[in-house]
Design a protein around this nucleic acid. Structure first.
Lengths: 152, 152
DNA sequence: TGACAAAGTTAGGCGTGACTAACTATACTA
DNA sequence: TAGTATAGTTAGTCACGCCTAACTTTGTCA
């Protein structure tokens, strides 16, 4: 049991991972300050979280250096981000929830639901969208899952 | 700000409230031991939670006495239980998730979703059920929301 | 009515996740 | 290059939510 703890991540650490993933995706490198701003926590809380992610083998991180994710960290973050997108798409496109509220709800629910249910939600959302579109345009834009650039 | 704190309840306290509500519903009175068994926690954890619920004006509770909910406690518990039922119905009846998994997922998600989304989920689940039944039998059994005896 | 079992509480501890305050490192600019 | 602003870390604290161990209260029964 040296480096990579593989216990289930807490909701909080999943949030950090997702934030780092999105920031790195947008600007190449995640800064501690930006992570703090994104998640609405103090900078010192970020430092603590980064240490935990490093201990678990999910992030590369040196004090005063930048933060990047390990291969495993990216994989986990991508899974969290995927859940988020699927849930948000369901709330918006199927239930008709307004974007901000859908965003908030997805943030909460992404930690609560297992992959089995997420999988069923994807099929369901895609079907519902296809049904409501009545086949008139190209299919399955529902989950908006084609945008992430596939680095790694 | 004397007795009734009205800050948002933690997921944990919502669970306690729901358990007390269901136990009292089933057997008239919630025992500490049964709450512990229901939630899979130690008896001492229940004692702590009961004190918090009392401080917030949600439960009547005397050491070594029984536990009952206040009017506000019952209202809150009913809302949590309602969310649970709606979510479980959606997972089972719309997504086709197996009962145990739906139960588990509802337990997690009930704390994450606000009333607006739950409301939309009700309409959606009812519609979906009516659609899939093709109007052949009486409508809106989907959410199974007619069983709770309406005391108070 | 005294002994015993079951139920419940108290005390103390641990992990997590946040905070503030104060410090250190880094980067910018005059 | 010295001063200063910004970024990041460390130290200390707090609340929450759980645990175990030991204690107290209550109820039952011979």
């Amino acid at each position: 049991m040296g480096s990579g703890e593989d216990r289930k991540l807490s909701a909080s650490l999943e949030d950090y991972l997702e934030a780092i993933f999105n920031l790195a995706d947008a600007s190449g490198c995640a800064r501690s300050k930006d992570i703090a701003r994104t998640l609405g926590v103090a900078r010192s809380s970020v430092t603590g979280a980064l240490r935990l992610l490093r201990e678990r083998g999910l992030a590369y991180y040196e004090p005063y250096g930048g933060v990047t994710l390990t291969q495993q960290g990216r994989a986990t973050a991508r899974e969290v981000a995927r859940k988020h997108e699927i849930l948000q798409a369901f709330f918006m496109n199927v239930l008709g929830v307004e974007k901000e509220a859908a965003q908030r709800a997805a943030c909460q629910a992404e930690h609560a639901l297992e992959s089995e249910i997420i999988g069923k939600l994807v099929s369901f959302t895609d079907d519902a969208m296809a049904r409501s579109a009545g086949g008139r345009d190209e299919k399955s834009e529902s989950t908006g899952r084609r945008k992430r650039s596939a680095k790694e």
